[in-house]
Design a protein around this nucleic acid. Sequence first.
DNA 1: CTTCTCTCCGCTCAAATGAGCGGGCCGGGC
DNA 2: GCCCGGCCCGCTCATTTGAGCGGAGAGAAG
Lengths: 326, 326
Amino acid sequence: MSAKKQGLGLVESLRLAAVARRFYEQGASKLEIAEEFGISRFKVARMLDAARESGVVRVEFRLPAPVDLVLSEEIRAAYRLDRVLVLERAPEPESREVARRKIGTLAARLLTEIVTTGDVLGLSWARSVNAMTDAIESLPKCPIVQLCGVQAGMDMRDRSVETVSRVASVSGGEPYPIFGPLVLPDRRTTETLRRQPGIAETFGQFKNLTKAVVSIGAWKPEESTVYDALDEAERSAIAKRGAKAEVSARLFDADGNPMSTGLAHHVLAISAEDLLAVPEVIALGYTEPKAEAIDAVLRSGMVSTLITDAAAAVPLLKLAEARPLP
Amino acid sequence: MSAKKQGLGLVESLRLAAVARRFYEQGASKLEIAEEFGISRFKVARMLDAARESGVVRVEFRLPAPVDLVLSEEIRAAYRLDRVLVLERAPEPESREVARRKIGTLAARLLTEIVTTGDVLGLSWARSVNAMTDAIESLPKCPIVQLCGVQAGMDMRDRSVETVSRVASVSGGEPYPIFGPLVLPDRRTTETLRRQPGIAETFGQFKNLTKAVVSIGAWKPEESTVYDALDEAERSAIAKRGAKAEVSARLFDADGNPMSTGLAHHVLAISAEDLLAVPEVIALGYTEPKAEAIDAVLRSGMVSTLITDAAAAVPLLKLAEARPLP
DNA sequence: CTTCTCTCCGCTCAAATGAGCGGGCCGGGC
DNA sequence: GCCCGGCCCGCTCATTTGAGCGGAGAGAAG
């Protein structure tokens, strides 16, 4: 195929462009164009093909956000999701914080658009979700439910603990916060806390959730707040059982099956079951090391919308191709 | 119409883009897309319209030369020419010399493409035509015929007098030069020169011409080499008779009618009649002051291809609209 | 609560279109 | 010279598509 731009020559390019403009910009029918130019309609069709193949006409997509359309569509199709937003690869390598802010902004825009009055919105407590809440500028009035406790010691410079209240104040809806740690030392403490008035009320909302925003963690150091919060013994025990991903302190294996481990009993968080029942789950997961975890979570069928970056999307697609969904 | 890019929102834009990509890039039929997305084919059609109207998809034309497609097409249609090449307006205002070089380059590329062995190519002697010859890098073998004498005193820094020989040497064809001035003092001298062996031979080729490149001059100071070469009395006499344009020392009135004036008898140049009989005449005329002259020449029906610049094209279009061709 | 209007949707039918086919033209090899 | 293969063209027929229409649903006005 030597049909590069110049392969056609100036004269022919002009002719193609004239026809293409008539067709694409002015919406003329091929028959009409054929009559005007005194050629057959078949010739017009061939010219239009040639124009596109040779690059004389280009179709360009201009999204109102820096989203990689091709990757997004491929992942959406591969995992049969409702929506996928892949953040375009930045021209320069960028820090994790910058990437997180971009992902957060993208998620915030999406959320602002799809949430309506009547929704009950759940927010997982995670860095990327917090980045999203920072970027939310408006939101229809609806209850905001915290899906899991707060991981102390993470980075508390921002007002992360108040995330839910902040979003609720933007929205004008009722906040359901969880003032308590995500990971607790033992089952008893956990049970006790769950019965605390405020916390119990929040847990009571889990069945009503219509939308939720969660973050996907990989079962690796630095890639999951829960992983980082556990001691070495429990981390590796869980890893040995094949945990690949963590969402709101709930674990998934490589096939996306929810796992029941001891961890389940000493965290303050929505259950995997409740999470799976939420009609619209927006999952945030980005950077290359998370690809495997994202793959796992997508296979669970829990996620309806994925927001990721190109760095994660490329290996993710390979994983999807390697093990296509049945 | 408030349907600007953002008027649609991110979610809808993504959806439109996904459909549009499937249609424009992958060439899927609307029916097929409709089935995939679970919508009606009418919806797909409406979405594609919306995508184009909202600017989510843009069609872009990439010509292998800096040609303004819209102006070119409009002028082509208005004057019913075969081809029009309007040089794009430069981002910065540029000198006449730079513009001339660009026009020349454009003309050279066109000529290289459309000339074939078997053609007999005529070249008028003019600054822009010389600029073209400078830019010609290759040309099929064909006779090169000089259409008019050389205007001494113009700018002779380059090897303009040898233009025809140079082109002929690139082409490998026979040169038919005119070694003689364009404007002569009287009829007798002119007749004598025309009978000179070399010149007579060249004049003999005029009937065989299949293609010619000429420059359009306006009957104003600095806008025509012939105008500049005459004395004030003759200039104004001709102007009073309504001359608007000059091509190869032949004059045209505002309606494009060839004029017979005394000038005709003391120039060494192809006759208007012979020029009108050439099947393909490429006319070069640029800069705003020439618009009226270009209009006049195009009305003569002599020109098949016009090469101009945006500065001339815009007022030219106004002239075409003011007096549409019958 | 009713009614009106506006918008969105998908239907019908006629027109536009694409896939595939065979004929004619051109250049190269025998 | 003559044949052959490749290429470009425009035909037929089945499929796709667009224009215009009427119905359904939402929201506003009465």
